[in-house]
Structure formats: C-alpha cells, structure tokens
C-alpha cells in the first residue's frame, strides 16, 4: 500500500515539477521520496522506475492519441524504430530508468540508523 502510494506521490510530484522545471526534475523527486521512504535499494528502483515510467507513459499517450500518432511516427522513423509504439516504449523506458536509478541513489544514500538497518 505504501509502495503504491509512493508511486502515485512521485508521479504527481514529477508531473508538477516538470511543468515548471526542466525534465530531470522528476529524478530529483524520485531521489527525495526514496530518501525518506524506508525501503531497500531494489524496491526503491522499482518504485522510481514504475512511477516515472507510468507518468511518462500517461503524459505521452495524452499527447500522442489526440495527435493520431503523427509526431510519434516521425520520431520513430527518425530513430529508425519500426513504429510509433516502439518510440513510446523507448520514451517510457528512458524515463523509467532515470526515475529508478535516482530512487535507488536516494535509498542507498539514506543515512543508516540502527533502527532501519535492523
């Protein structure tokens, strides 16, 4: 439940941050949330990956579907990808990777107090 809430929290905060800050602000959000959420590195990575991945996926689809894939198809061609959804997948993967790694960093940089390292 906490895991799910963290994902929603990061996705919402990232969306808010990206509207006013550069794209990598989502990485900072993941880092900060992971810094305070008490969980292991692997789980943090999954959390970051899923939250930014889902956020980017939703944001991409919100742009791409009303556009009827005009731009995503061109981007796919530009990067020699077979079709537009491969372009969306690559987008989501890159967003997810950045989110996952940042969260992982947050989790590992969390000061280990005796309580949590139990």
């Amino acid at each position: 439940m906490k895991f799910l809430l963290s994902i929603i929290l990061i996705a919402l905060l990232s969306a808010g941050a990206e509207f006013i800050l550069p794209w990598w602000s989502c990485a900072v959000v993941c880092f900060l949330v992971a810094l305070f959420a008490k969980q292991g590195g692997g789980k943090a990575f999954l959390m970051g990956f899923l939250s930014v991945g889902i956020f980017w996926l939703v944001a991409a689809l919100m742009r791409d579907i009303p556009n009827e894939h005009i731009l995503s198809s061109r981007m796919a061609a530009l990067f020699k990808l077979p079709n537009y959804w491969m372009f969306i997948i690559v987008t989501v993967f890159i967003g997810g990777l950045v989110g996952g790694l940042s969260a992982w960093v947050g989790a590992t940089l969390r000061p280990k107090t005796p309580n949590t390292s139990r």
Partner: peptide, 20 residues
C-alpha cells in the same frame, strides 16, 4: 539531447498537435 527531447511534458511530444 535525448532526455530533453523525449520528456513527454516539455520535449518533442509537446509539439504533437491534436488533430482536432
């Protein structure tokens, strides 16, 4: 710059104009 370009909020997809 791939990250900037792919970011669906500010990147290239922000130029995906709804057909209607």
């Amino acid at each position: 710059a791939i990250g900037r370009l792919l970011d669906p909020v500010n990147g290239c997809l922000a130029n995906a104009e709804p057909v209607n």
